[in-house]
Amino acid sequence: MSADDNSLLQLVREDLRGFGGYASARTHDLRGEVWLNANESPWANPADAGGGSRRYPDPQPPALRDALARLYACDPSRLLIGRGSDEAIDLLVRVLCVPGRDAVVVTPPVFGMYAVSARLQGAPLLEVPLVEGESGFGVDLEAVARAAEQGAAKLVFLCSPSNPTGASVPLDGIAALARRLHGRALVVVDEAYGEFSDQPSATTLMATHPNVAVLRTLSKAHALAAARIGVLIAHPALVRVLRACQAPYPVPAPCAELAAAALSEEALARTAARVDQVRSERVRLQRALATLAGVVRVHPSDGNYLLVRFADADAAFARLLAAGVVVRDQRAAPQLPDALRITIGTPEQNDRVLAALDAKEAAA
């Protein structure tokens, strides 16, 4: 076992370090013509034209795994495919954190599933609030490091670009944090919106920082939210442990087939063009919103959304709803009592947002 393997396995719960998990009918690579090992139906469902759904799927579909490895420029042994990023977040907390002892560090306001998973596991939650400045919200990485060290944290979640605030966490800061917490905690960088950012992926840090893991998803830029395909990219030793603790058949076959098709060369080219359009529209919408009466601030964003603060957020929310536009109300989130998060839509949808919020048009 290498030193990196050992340092990561020391972060895993003691009772799970040798855990083999459930051996499903698809665990072993067997070959045959008549499959009678999984108590599946010998006939297809009448609604299943292809007949493939009567069989349990491969736990980690090879074609999809290879396509994702190419997409994220990593070795397939570093990939864990699951039901969206949510499953990976939950697995990480359950596998690394002993209830009541090992803590989780988060940076609110931020994606809520980190805290939900910590609470369900009984892991202490350590909150290090984002700091608002002239350039928007940022992570106080020194405070994050102190909280992790003093609070016996096993996991640090960094959302980059951060949801809902929009800022990316600098790679050099992530590297310094991982170096400081080596052997003590796993630094998990959630890059759900990474395609919309100019910053390189934190996967580029893994060769020298084995305690860095990265979350990616096909839900956002790749427009496959309903397929629920999420990926954890991490050291192979950690991936093996997580796989043993994962549900037997996490990826439905129809979803895997759709996702693999969406990662073809032609599909990826169209996705890249749409990402470029979103980035262009993000600039246009940000500038236009900033000119409207009642808009206090539009935070800069590296994601496919804008965090907008209003003099009267309740009225703005109501006007958008009256125009048939649904946005995310952030007013219950820490530090955001006046904020709404607006996803970047098509040019026509963005024009509709602007028209609904334009006081001059509303008065006409």
Results as ranks from 00 to 15, higher is better:
residue 117 S to C: 14
residue 291 T to S: 12
residue 203 T to C: 13
residue 354 L to I: 04
residue 217 T to E: 09
residue 256 A to T: 01
residue 154 K to C: 08
residue 94 R to W: 06
residue 167 A to T: 12
residue 171 L to K: 03
residue 151 G to L: 08
residue 86 D to K: 13
residue 175 A to P: 07
residue 134 E to Y: 00
residue 337 P to T: 04
residue 192 A to W: 09
residue 73 A to S: 14
residue 361 E to A: 15
residue 26 R to Q: 13
residue 29 D to F: 13
residue 223 A to S: 12
residue 320 L to R: 00
residue 257 E to A: 15
residue 161 P to S: 06
residue 291 T to C: 09
residue 6 N to C: 11
residue 165 T to H: 01
residue 121 Q to P: 07
residue 325 V to D: 00
residue 109 P to A: 06
residue 202 A to R: 05
residue 106 V to S: 15
residue 73 A to E: 15
residue 308 V to S: 01
residue 174 I to T: 09
residue 224 L to V: 01
residue 286 Q to M: 11
residue 149 E to S: 13
residue 247 A to R: 15
residue 300 P to S: 08
residue 10 Q to Y: 02
residue 6 N to L: 12
residue 261 A to E: 14
residue 18 G to E: 12
residue 315 A to F: 04
residue 1 M to A: 11
residue 348 E to G: 02
residue 279 R to M: 13
residue 8 L to I: 01
residue 146 R to S: 13
residue 289 L to S: 06
residue 172 D to S: 15
residue 346 T to H: 01
residue 191 E to N: 02
residue 275 V to N: 00
residue 348 E to H: 11
residue 61 P to F: 07
residue 252 P to E: 04
residue 204 T to F: 03
residue 227 A to C: 10
residue 276 D to K: 12
residue 53 S to A: 15
residue 193 Y to K: 07
residue 339 A to R: 03
residue 332 A to V: 10
residue 5 D to G: 00
residue 111 F to R: 15
residue 42 P to F: 02
residue 219 S to M: 14
residue 8 L to G: 01
residue 337 P to I: 06
residue 277 Q to W: 10
residue 102 D to A: 05
residue 119 R to E: 14
residue 15 D to F: 05
residue 235 H to V: 01
residue 120 L to H: 11
residue 68 L to W: 09
residue 117 S to P: 04
residue 2 S to K: 04
residue 31 R to G: 11
residue 220 K to I: 12
residue 283 V to K: 13
residue 293 A to P: 10
residue 252 P to F: 05
